[in-house]
Design a protein around this nucleic acid. Sequence first.
DNA 1: GTGAAGATCGCC
DNA 2: GCGATCTTCACG
Length: 220
Amino acid sequence: MTPSGLSSASSTSTSAPASALLPHSPLPLPRDFYDRDTLQVARDLLGCQLVRLHQGKLMIAQIVETEAYRGSEDSACHAHRRKTPRTEAMFGPPGHAYVYLVYGMHWLLNVVTQPEGNPCAVLIRAVEPVEGEDAMRALRNAKGRQLCNGPGKLTRALRVDKALYGHDMTRSEQLWITQAAAPAVIASGPRVGIDYAQPADRDAPWRLWHEGNPWVSRAR
DNA sequence: GTGAAGATCGCC
DNA sequence: GCGATCTTCACG
């Protein structure tokens, strides 16, 4: 991993973030990692690797874009109003998958955060393929389009759907996340597709992404 | 039971 | 810019 041209904005020192120097851990992030402030988890998930084991094939992709959904206080969060069958997983313990269908056709993947009973989650919005790209492509359209630069696209590429609803992502089975190098520059802005939310929530900069990474979704 | 809307995407 | 597509939830 080279320092590359991205001399981080601040010129205070040449030292990289500690996390960038740590060796990649193949173990799933522990529950404690998710049992924290949702925005912090959303930030720390950038650069981590999403690992998917499906039908004997291993797929690995680096998380480059996330969004924080902050429970009952957040009018953009599905759990804002009340507990329903769909949002049940968000009310459960951290580290589990909250998967749901939007627009009748796209599965979206979230990881539950904060202590049980506080219905928060981080939406994985975009990933960069690292390994198993063949398996990711198998199902896809031709045209050489990017596979994973959007929340609905990455679930299709990684074969994530209802079957993984509530899945415990702290175990190395089917779907989990491992620590890797944090991105050099993190940018933030309003979350996408939540015009229905109240202004304060709609405008909150709770969408985070790896600045400059070509796999970040194009906001609409 | 019914209807309206949706944390998106790809093509027109 | 628009339609696809179907589950979920509010309402009655």
